[in-house]
């Protein structure tokens, strides 16, 4: 099983599981992170910065710490 942060720019996968405490889970949910949804990693900022992902029609940036909590299954 892979983490979201292990995707290469341009690759996409499906969200398999979200490991987060309640408030973070809630927030990710409201922004569109849902199990089974397709997610694409668009790019990563330099110097170990955040990743830019695309969920449906929404673009979101998040840090690697948060990206590591999202498990994915390659399509």
């Amino acid at each position: 099983m892979l983490n979201l942060s292990q995707l290469q720019p341009g690759e996409s996968a499906h969200i398999h599981a979200i490991h987060a405490e309640e408030s973070l889970f809630h927030r990710l949910n409201a922004m569109g992170f849902r199990i089974g949804k397709k997610i694409e990693l668009v790019r990563q900022a330099s110097f170990g910065g955040p990743v830019h992902v695309r969920l449906g029609s929404t673009d979101i940036i998040l840090r690697l710490t948060e990206a590591n909590r999202i498990q994915i299954a390659r399509a």
Partner: peptide
Amino acid sequence: EPFILEMPP
């Protein structure tokens, strides 16, 4: 604090 931000077009 988690850092999650939306990027609008």
